[in-house]
Design a protein around this nucleic acid. Structure first.
Lengths: 339, 339
DNA sequence: TAATTTCGCGCAAACGTTTGCACATCTTTT
DNA sequence: AAAAGATGTGCAAACGTTTGCGCGAAATTA
């Protein structure tokens, strides 16, 4: 028996009252008598009535769906972030439409269009590495559908975003190394084009000056995050006139490449500090002694919360200027559990 | 200008024709004159008309949404599988509603209920480790909403599922090791309760007998997949009267634990073969020489395809018996790229 | 008791789209 | 010349729910 789901009409007919009364009774409307309410609710429960979400969404012109576009779920940062997004969405009765851009700008565009035609109420985006144009996002702005960016923020004005500030975590990291007695601290940074690289550098500098040490720019080298380039960078540090006793690397992968290289040439006395705190470090033979944590779960939660707030915001009050959420989740140093 | 999206009505009014004509014109209905079709399509394009999906879904009583419930996105198997699911869903114009059970049976139940109230057209499920009752799935059967299970299949009858057969991959693996000259092959298997453990064992046995070698059951030890237990298992093998020269481990993590242990006690001459082929092995200092690949992307695709077929299957022909899809994706041995 | 308020409920419209049916016009066949 | 078919279009119902408005009856006030 593929019995069609119960509708409000049927309940109305059985109780010989109107559909509107049933609807109001179920929604605890004040203008319905207590007795009718009870009767309706009882019958509804017996019949396993569940409101037809599609009818409601259609009526309200809302989908209660938020679209999420991110580069790669296999990257631990994102798979953790999505958990935060999910949790908030479910708590607030929204539903998550997920899609991966696989770091392909074209696909990202396609997905944005798809999300639009699907009629999402809002969008959560972490942009693809290759994305360089941003009109597909502007389209949403025209339609008044909110977008909140997270982690990978596009360089455009007047957007909502949530991201982490690596400056603080880096400050803590360098501070920690100084307290541990290190005096020559190298850094393998990422490409200068990334905000994240800047923040790391700033944190480094602030920690040095806070400790009344002079900052040597040549101790910070950049790399493109590939293994080859990491090795070059590490080489540069090892051949520095002041050979560093410890190195802060851009992320866990860079750390890994660098550590492997260092070990391959027989060195063992260099401490590493890294970012992200990926699960892989639990399986590595040599691990960083500390990591700067970016709290992806928290970032995901925060971004979803803002987006849903935005969606439900009392209409565009034409008087007040639009305010943009720029939330920064501070990063934090975490000591490695393994030794 | 938050201009409300264009509707078919507006187009009709502007062209002074009826809405039904517009609708049919846009859908290339045969009974509409060529000229009207052109006029309609042209105007629709100019106005950036996009059909209101919610209205259509409501009308058809379909959501074009498939729910996906899986244990953990941070497990690479699942994050890869979801890519396959996504790709098929998008290709076939469906949309993916994602949720993680985090291997919690209670949460899984909740999610199933949520999916139902959201009105998904079908469900893709990989069950949580702790799930032991299955009524929440039966509910969907009553409503005639198809479910396809993948990878983690519940032990109930009359279900659709897609899973991998580790027997073949294991056969290949053992065969490969024998060809390589190994004669004593150990195996660290998983808990006997898992089908997957059985399949591994069967593959092992078949390879031995196919090579006219006698099978020594004591060379297969089980473990609960924890590091401690893995070490115990490895110890047992090392102390075996016929010390194995190579070991097949249940998965990459077990391989990792075992390799680390073996190395820590100064051994270096044991080859490992593992399953899953996770990205982490690219970052390990010592890696298995080969891995049994389970093709999660392919599994995800296949499962999604079957589900959507099921959704669109011409009504439950009351005559013919319901057929259940039991698709098995054969596993395959993959040699390690790094040496 | 009459006037007014409160309470409880029903009517009907609305959301955007598809589709069975009927109707009108034009073309073809007998 | 009349009947039949083809072609193109419009009418209206339907999907399930919410909600503004109106109306009668009961309760309150003057």
């Amino acid at each position: 028996m593929p019995d069609k789901p119960t509708t409000i009409k049927e309940i109305a007919k059985m109780l010989k009252i109107s559909v509107s009364t049933v609807s109001r009774a179920l929604n605890d409307h004040s203008s319905i008598g207590l007795t009718t309410k009870m009767r309706v609710k009882k019958l509804a429960a017996e019949l396993n009535y569940e409101p037809n979400q599609r009818a409601i969404q259609f009526l309200h012109g809302k989908s209660f769906v938020i679209g999420v576009i991110l580069p790669e779920l296999s990257e631990s940062f994102f798979s953790t972030a999505i958990s935060g997004i999910e949790d908030i969405a479910y708590k607030r009765n929204y539903t998550v439409l997920l899609a991966q851009s696989h770091d392909d700008a074209e696909r990202e565009k396609l997905l944005v269009a798809k999300m639009k035609s699907q009629g999402v109420d809002g969008l959560l985006v972490s942009v693809a590495k290759t994305t360089s144009t941003y009109e597909h996002f502007e389209l949403f702005r025209k339609l008044n559908i909110p977008i909140v960016f997270f982690d990978r923020i596009p360089p455009i004005k007047d957007i909502h975003y949530v991201s982490s500030n690596l400056e603080t975590g880096t400050f803590e990291a360098v501070n920690f190394l100084l307290k541990k007695g290190h005096r020559t601290i190298g850094m393998i940074n990422g490409p200068g084009t990334l905000v994240a690289s800047h923040e790391r550098k700033e944190g480094y500098i602030r920690a040095m000056t806070a400790n009344r040490l002079k900052f040597d720019p040549s101790l910070i080298v950049t790399c493109d995050l590939s293994e080859d380039d990491t090795i070059k960078a590490m080489d540069a540090l090892l051949n520095h006139r002041r050979k560093p006793s410890t190195v802060v690397t851009f992320n866990d992968y860079v750390a890994l490449f660098a550590m492997r290289y260092v070990k391959s040439i027989g060195l063992t006395d260099i401490d590493f500090v890294s970012y992200a705190n990926l699960p892989i470090i639990n399986y590595m033979d040599h691990t960083p002694i500390a990591s700067v944590e970016q709290f992806p779960y928290k970032q995901g939660k925060k971004a979803a919360d803002i987006l849903i707030d935005l969606i439900n915001k009392p209409k565009n009050e034409s008087g007040s200027e639009q305010a943009y959420f720029n939330i920064v989740v501070e990063s934090e140093l975490v000591l490695s559990k393994r030794k």
